[in-house]
Design a binder for these strands. Structure first.
Lengths: 331, 331
DNA sequence: TTGTATGCGTTATCAA
DNA sequence: TTGATAACGCATACAA
């Protein structure tokens, strides 16, 4: 592959001039510059990234480590981040941690090795990735979930409040024994949504038995089991708060299986909107999170840090809003 | 950040020995090796990726350029590719071309600059990316769609046959005026599915008027409009073949809007399965594509080329299968 | 304004 | 088995 020397030879100048011309330095004769440009063009010259990064000691690449590429919530975050990064001349590489601390650790290692400019991370919550990044002075911004015991920059949604609102909505709609299906303990969004649920249940003076709560992975499969178990109680819930989109699929499958109709038989509200939620009969009531904006905000914070902003760590909390639909209507 | 020299100094050896020890060369004294290892550990040493890649003239990274990160079909491909790549010690970076030739081109440029080991590409079909990659001798494997006018390695699904099968299924179920909603002209999967549809319609001796066909982007929004227009015909279709998952959302939205019930009023079959398709009432009949396997197969081919396999270009064609559900049942 | 020369952090060659 | 050294391709300090 053509190198800078090839271009220099063909243009009849030194490599230094080629470098300057290609990087748009003003201090170069327009005639030479255009000669360089055409030479580069003719050779199909592409600067060698590794060499350039080595020399510059920096890379225009951000790593985005998310816990599930197949979850539309996270891909929306990715889009937001990418649009902002792209605007600033940065690329974003997507890494899928599968919510496994060791995979997360592995990707952080790769990011560190490749000397990416910064990392956007939605931490599994049980790893030491944050510590690792801090030790190597690589800027990090946490998205969706905060870094464990850290004061780092963070972009969150007010999950607790949103969960409380959603639960109170169920109460308003006349549901009286409300269950909650949330994610793994230790994952802050899971715990927060549970707390918001508890806030509401107690506020409303309803049954707050711990047995009305189930936990599973943030996936359909786990949620299916959990929903079965919840609905098999001697006193089954007549309303359920579901902590994310993927889990909602599992819950709804279980309802179909049990011939229970959302809304009429069991009120259902789930976190995260998705294109298909309005196609259901009845359509699904959801807590819509500003995923795209979260990604964009996080990328902006990260780029700020990369360009040297020193201020102390900040947390941006965006708010989610309830979208009431048929699955929480009795009729 | 600690360099190899720091490690060397701390372990009291030369950088050469550090390099050998860390890369597991057998020709190094076990005592020294362990001294190096602990020194590296203590310093939190991470080899500098760019430097290593520069020296080695190769990178253990694959680029996967897909046309829509938010489409579960493509994220499933990504997972397949990643699992295989990971197994072989390669990382995969995901790039989102948004089905725009210039974005695709841009990402190919980045991949070329960063000297990735190879590229997995689902081409928009109108770009010159393939040519670009070939000129730079970067191995490419096309996924889901072939490279324009190219004999490169490819992993495809037999879309035409699957579309024909799906259409014939509609015929068997008693639908008689069947429409087709496919993607942009020039995108091979779009054209193939249309061709398969035509094969079946003619085979069955049904109305093959070109006006029963609509095209839009492979997105919900475009499909919504297209479906409206299709159903506004004086002689509206009683069955529709939809060319992908995202478009199916748009079509189903339109049906809701028009108070038409899938199956009873309009038979609907769409490409790509998704978790939510069984939650609909009636559940959606789909053509299920082996997306994960496609990603895995493509990654295997690519790794083969990277490791020097010379044989002539091969095309792997996987087959899709119809999953009949309620949306194609009259009752 | 241009060119020469140096160094970024590794790995590989070669001699010891 | 080890160490000194060169080279990967680029960007820049410095000299011209």
């Amino acid at each position: 592959m053509a190198t800078i020397s090839d271009v220099a030879a063909r243009a009849g100048v030194s490599t230094a001039t080629v470098s300057r011309a290609l990087n748009g330095k003003s201090t170069v004769d327009p005639v030479l510059a255009s000669r360089v440009l055409t030479a580069a063009e003719e050779l199909g010259y592409r600067p060698n990234g590794p060499a350039r990064n080595l020399r510059r000691q920096e890379t225009a690449v951000l790593a985005l480590i998310i816990s599930d590429v197949e979850n539309p919530f996270f891909t929306a975050i990715a889009r937001g981040a990418e649009d902002v990064a792209h605007e600033a001349g940065y690329s974003v590489v997507l890494c899928n941690s599968d919510d496994q601390p060791d995979k997360e650790h592995e990707y952080v290692d790769v990011a560190l090795q490749e000397r990416v400019a910064g990392v956007l991370l939605s931490p599994t919550g049980r790893g030491d990735s944050a510590e690792l990044l801090r030790r190597h002075r690589t800027p990090v911004v946490a998205v969706d979930r905060p870094l464990p015991d850290s004061d780092g920059d963070t972009v969150l949604v007010d999950s607790r409040r949103a969960a409380r609102d959603a639960t109170l909505h169920l109460v308003e709609q006349g549901y009286r024994r409300i269950g909650c299906l949330t994610g793994p303990s230790g994952v802050l969004t899971a715990d927060d949504r549970l707390n918001g649920y508890r806030d509401a249940v107690r506020e409303a003076g309803l049954d707050d038995s711990p047995d009305l709560v189930r936990r599973s992975e943030f996936r359909a499969a786990g949620a299916r089991e959990a929903a079965r178990s919840l609905l098999a109680r001697q006193a089954p819930p007549d309303g359920i708060l579901v902590a994310n989109n993927a889990m909602a699929v599992g819950v709804l499958e279980t309802l179909v299986e049990l011939r229970l109709r959302p809304g009429r038989d069991v009120g259902v509200v789930a976190f995260d909107d998705a294109p298909w939620t309005t196609l259901l009969d009845p359509p699904l009531t959801v807590v819509s999170q500003p995923a795209y904006d979260m990604g964009a905000a996080a990328a902006r914070m990260l780029l700020g840090r990369i360009s040297g902003e020193r201020g102390k760590a900040s947390t941006t909390t965006l708010s989610a809003h309830l979208v009431p639909r048929g699955s929480t209507r009795r009729s």
